[in-house]
Design a protein around this nucleic acid. Structure first.
Length: 470
DNA sequence: ATGTTC
């Protein structure tokens, strides 16, 4: 593979073989060294029918199912462009939500342990069933799959204003519950309003540093303010939908005349029965994930109100695993594209018509979850954003789960978190070692490279005060 | 990520 460095933060994979477009990787030399193996996946994605401009990778790229995590690929819908479940990933619409409390750290510090105890008791998490809602049946599930956060708010779990601060107003249009199979429904029924496990979390954070005061003010955050960050997705429902539709596409791909270098890239044209079926099911899973984050926000709000008498306002809710139909200029004309973002966050620039009016001047908020001992970031979209207005999504693993569990002692980690004043409420301390900071890349390097590559700008850094994990 | 290997 021929990799050409184009500037400090941009590398190009020269097209060869069946590649229809080049690969473009935004990274530093250091970050790239960790990602070398996944560049094959960037090149494989470049062979997909209808792909335009380039197969992109963000600075936090790492190995994924078919597509790399940190990958962005857009296909031209009217030119046979495909949609691929592997380009979204198993955790459909996994994403991040940030809420800002109406107070600074000092005002909450005396109540922090108590708040964490309440969250510990009231946030359903871990593998398997459990959630703040137990659905009455398929009708209610269908309403939730269509309505997302909006449905949760309509049921009394949130404020109308929340929806203005959610990507897509809280619900992806065109969700098709009929394309959600029986197994996905069954798994989904019992997990509404739950965190899940692995790198998902709910954190109480403090704004440690503001880099752009004006933008931070528009977003509703200020230095030393207390925030709550929620990182979770569509649980077993999204996972099952991905599994079901990969299988369905794998079966019919040849009939559509499509050959891919890796079966995990199973895809069909967006404009085909299987493509439409997947996109309908994917939208339903996206709405499930958003309702999930809305309900967990409600849990956090109740804890803050009860223990500290404080309110939480939604800053933003954004997904980092989704395919979307968007219109972008390609080769000088507007084209209807299916933009796959997998481990990549949409980052609309200032002035974009899809942003709520009060945010339009500064650009879309982008929320980057870090690791529990380090930091998380708030970024903003920028004009020119080189990959269909997308940027990074997180730190990315450096050690495998197995390696982390073997190398890191749970007692040592527990002491370290205590020493650093981070009130941790894990389901198991042993499981927490897999999520230790040293098991991840430095999220600061990732956001610096993303900003350097012209994908976004850094607005604020947040550090954890307490963490709830599966 | 995931009833963590149908």
């Amino acid at each position: 593979m021929e990799l050409v460095q184009e500037d400090r933060y941009r590398f190009r994979i020269v097209p060869e073989g069946d590649m229809r477009v080049p690969g473009v990787v935004f990274a530093t030399r250091d970050l790239l060294a960790d990602a070398e193996k996944s560049l094959t996946q960037v090149a494989d994605v470049a062979t997909l029918p209808g792909i335009v401009t380039a197969s992109y990778a963000m600075p936090d790229i790492h190995w994924g199912y078919g597509f790399p995590i940190g990958g962005v690929a857009a296909t031209a819908i009217d030119e046979g462009g495909v949609v691929s479940p592997g380009g979204v990933g198993f955790d459909i619409s996994c994403g991040v939500r940030l809420l800002a409390a109406d107070c600074a750290r000092a005002e909450v510090a005396p109540m922090l342990e108590k708040i964490m105890d309440v969250l510990d008791r009231s946030v359903p998490r871990g593998a398997g069933p459990g959630g703040v809602w137990r659905l009455t049946g398929p009708r209610q599930l269908e309403r939730l799959l269509r309505g997302g956060s909006r449905h949760a708010v309509e049921e009394g779990h949130g404020e109308e204003r929340d929806l203005a601060r959610c990507e897509d107003g809280g619900a992806v249009p065109d969700a098709d519950a009929d394309q959600v199979g029986p197994r996905a429904r069954e798994r989904g029924l019992g997990q509404v309003g739950s965190l899940g496990s692995a790198n998902h979390f709910m954190e109480v954070q403090r704004v440690a540093e503001v880099y752009d005061r004006h933008t931070a003010e528009v977003f509703g955050i200020a230095e030393d303010q207390v925030c709550v960050m929620i990182h979770c997705g569509s649980r077993g429902l999204g996972h099952q939908i991905c599994t079901d539709h990969v299988r369905a596409m794998d079966k019919v791909m040849a009939r559509h005349g499509i050959r891919v270098p890796d079966r995990q890239l199973a895809c069909t044209p967006v404009d085909s029965p299987e493509g439409r079926a997947y996109l309908g099911a994917m939208a339903a899973a996206a709405n499930y994930a958003r309702a999930n984050r809305q309900l967990l926000s409600d849990v956090a709000r109740r804890a803050f109100a009860r223990v500290a008498g404080r309110r939480l306002s939604l800053v933003y809710d954004v997904s980092h695993n989704l395919a979307k139909i968007e219109t972008h200029q390609v080769d000088g004309r507007p084209r209807r594209l299916c933009v796959h973002r997998k481990g990549a966050t949409r980052a609309f620039p200032p002035g974009h018509p899809d942003l709520p009016e009060d945010l339009r001047e500064v650009g879309q908020p982008v929320l980057i979850p870090g690791t529990m001992g380090t930091a998380s970031y708030v970024l903003a979209g920028v004009a020119g954003g080189g990959a269909f207005f997308s940027t990074c999504h997180g730190a990315g693993r450096r050690m495998s789960r197995h390696e982390a569990a073997r190398k890191i002692s749970s007692r040592e980690l527990r002491n370290r978190l205590e020493r650093d004043g981070i009130a941790a409420r894990p389901l198991s301390w042993r499981g927490l070692t897999e999520e230790a900071p040293e098991a991840y890349k430095d999220v600061g390097e990732v956001v610096a490279a993303s900003e350097g590559a012209g994908l976004c700008r850094i607005v604020a850094r947040l550090v954890p005060l307490g963490v709830v994990k599966g």
